[in-house]
């Protein structure tokens, strides 16, 4: 039996609620996007319900730990195939053993979650550095990204603090999602990349200066493309100005 939900974190937590309430163990908890329903499978639709979801979130918070809730959220955002199963198993174990769950590093259910978490955290950290804003006409700073994981909501607060006096947009092209900030409010909204952007007049000057800087800072007798790629994997180069 599979549970089908709307793809949101709330929806997923609602599914967990239902599984406990109905005493069922769904073999998968899948988002309804891109779902190929097969005639022979018995799928159960879960209606997202925020009060059920927040009850699950609260009990993870209290009966396990706030870090565990964060772990669950990060793993959810990894969107990795089968992460739905791993989270479910992790939560079940958590309700059994309580707040020390993350010390059970020799248990595969915990280890798996920790590993994914490390990956997601690493991408967040990388993204904070590798995002590049372009100044558009009308004084908006625009940054396109295509991260492996769905981390836009996790990186936005950093830029809200950093560029508090600046209008900016971070746009996840892969997921058609954007965070927009106008010096006061920050919102998450769907956004398809079907608009033309017009760079401000001085934008290309600064881009050239940056490229110049990037070139002249390298020490010629120490060139090491392998090391460079190890830190800055090729898949992130698309939106870098300097590459």
């Amino acid at each position: 039996m599979k549970y089908i939900y709307d793809g949101s974190f709330e929806g997923y937590l609602t599914a967990i609620y239902e599984a406990y309430y109905r005493r069922e163990t769904p073999e998968r908890i899948l988002p309804d996007t891109n779902l190929q329903e097969s005639l022979f499978e018995e799928n159960i639709r879960i209606e997202t319900n925020s009060s059920k979801a927040s009850r699950v979130a609260n009990s993870i918070n209290e009966k396990i730990s706030p870090t565990s809730l964060e772990n669950v959220y990060y793993t959810f955002l990894s969107e990795l195939d089968e992460s739905d199963v791993w989270i479910f198993q992790y939560i079940k174990l958590g309700f059994k053993v309580g707040k020390n769950i993350d010390s059970y590093l020799s248990d595969d259910r915990v280890l798996k979650i920790m590993k994914i978490n490390r990956k997601v955290t690493r991408e967040i950290h990388r993204m904070l550095g590798l995002i590049r804003f372009r100044q558009l006409e009308g004084n908006i700073f625009y940054a396109p990204i295509e991260p492996d994981f769905n981390i836009i909501t996790l990186i936005a607060p950093h830029f809200q603090k950093r560029f508090a006096d600046q209008n900016w947009v971070i746009h996840d092209i892969k997921r058609n999602l954007a965070v927009l900030f106008d010096c006061i409010n920050m919102v998450l909204a769907p956004l398809t990349p079907d608009f033309a952007i017009e760079l401000s007049k001085k934008e290309t000057d600064y881009q050239h200066l940056w490229i110049q800087y990037f070139k002249s800072i390298a020490i010629k007798n120490r060139i090491n493309p392998k090391l460079q790629k190890q830190f800055m994997p090729h898949r992130y180069w698309k939106y870098l100005i300097e590459k």
């Binding site: 950290h125 904070l128 550095g129 590798l130 950093h158 603090k161 950093r162 560029f163 508090a164 006096d165 600046q166 010096c183 990037f214 800072i217 390298a218 020490i219 120490r222 060139i223 090491n224 493309p225 392998k226 090391l227 460079q228 190890q230 830190f231 800055m232 870098l240 300097e242």
Partner: peptide, 22 residues
């Protein structure tokens, strides 16, 4: 409301062709 804040963990923004953090 000024510009910028500092992250105490340090952020690399790029890696130059010799592999050093910029």
């Amino acid at each position: 409301g000024g510009l910028g804040n500092n992250q105490s963990s340090g952020i690399c923004h790029s890696w130059s062709d010799d592999g050093r953090c910029i």
